[in-house]
Design a protein around this nucleic acid. Sequence first.
DNA 1: CTGGGGAGGGGGCCC
DNA 2: GGGGCCCCCTCCCCA
Length: 480
Amino acid sequence: MEISSHQFHLLQQLNEQRRQDLFCDCSILVEGKVFKAHRNVLFASSGYFKMLLSQCSKEASQPTTATFQAFSPETFSVILDFVYSGKLSLTGQNVIEVMSAASYLQMTDVISVCKTFIKSSLDISEKEKDRYFSLSDKEVNSNGVERLCLYGAGWKVESSPPHSHLSPDQGTCIVSGNSWSNFSYYPSTQRNAQQLSKQDQWQDSMKKASRHIGLPQPSDISHYKSSKLEDRASEPAGHAPTSEEDVQIDSEGDSGHSVYQYGQGSDALPRGLPMPQQGHESPHSAGKLKSPKGDEQYPSMHSVLGVMGSWADDDLPRMRFKCPFCTHVVKRKADLKRHLRCHTGERPYPCEACGKRFSRLDHLSSHFRTIHQACKPICRKCKRHVTEMTGQVVQEGTRRYRLCNECLSEAGIDSIRIDLDTEPPPEFPLEEDKESSWNYGEDNKSDIEIVEDGSTDLVIQQVDDSDDEAEEKDIKPNVS
DNA sequence: CTGGGGAGGGGGCCC
DNA sequence: GGGGCCCCCTCCCCA
């Protein structure tokens, strides 16, 4: 006989003990603020603490103290509350930092929820567009980042009273069951200007903080991205919440806060427990939160984050897509998707020549042309125009540039020949398992006169613009 | 310390 | 919607 409420009551008791500082055997110091907790709970919740406490297990009789400076006390409080309650209080303002902290603490469930929170925040609903149109006489400045998301660990349903303490413009979403089998979204209306400016400050402060306190920079969260990519790859193509399917509009628009119910396993939601706000919603089938396409980073975008606002002169609605993380508004969804990468740090385009990653393909192409292909027919030293007769391409590692013959002579690097075969091939980023198109050397060898100045990686190639085109076929960025 | 240039990055927009 | 181009801004390096 299994009592479904036992887990919840047990955790409730542990949480109560924590609050009363009973049996707490671990202190966590976060930027000067001390959090008390139980080692066994932390051990069970975080890979980071598991490693830390494993090392400290020999001194188990001594109280353990952990110190963090990589995130704020507020962020750790959110995470600790989740550990002891199964509820993750996410907002548009804290989701990035919570996700960073969860990454640091190796709490994959929290990371997943944050990702889902972001994804769902970007879900644009066709219904909401319609709704927006119907509300077009209102001042529209949509942004849903103020939504509060509670992440339930599965054994308790977080009720979301329709008239909570939260402001009416906060959306509500519910995710429950295995693999987010249920998802209901209640759109929020817009934040006021004060909130917007606050959001700007948050964005700026986050940028600064990321640099200052070492929050994951793009390169630091590569595991994130890879997991994102894995998620995307694993997501069944073609099954996704169309807006009509999954986004439910609360006609009153004043539903309470957002509630995520995350199911851990198939019985994530105990049978018999009510699912607030679901009764009046249409049923949702399993997996509806999945992205529409496997390659969709942001499956869709809630109008809470943003849709639009004004009527064009021709009486047609002029769509606008509002970034959930800042005040930026774009006309196209694709532009918003592109813009969001500057918030998520996603850099899906690696340069196969040097490994540097870019958020945009055109930036990668530009980088490759400039750095690795020496496309500019300009002497790098004297800035004069060079042709195949008046200049040569210099290869310095993976970098290429052109020098005129005069500058080459001045540099004294015009008479040393090397065999291209001795040049080590450029190193490619390993994470991209694509067939490399960087084949510099072999095909060009017959056309290029290689000269070296004696340094280890400086190579001079005779410029032949007609050959450049051939080279460009051989040396290409990682563009498939 | 300062100014110039290169490189990266973001936005608008066209195809 | 993706690719690509142009423009602008910022950062960094170097003279």
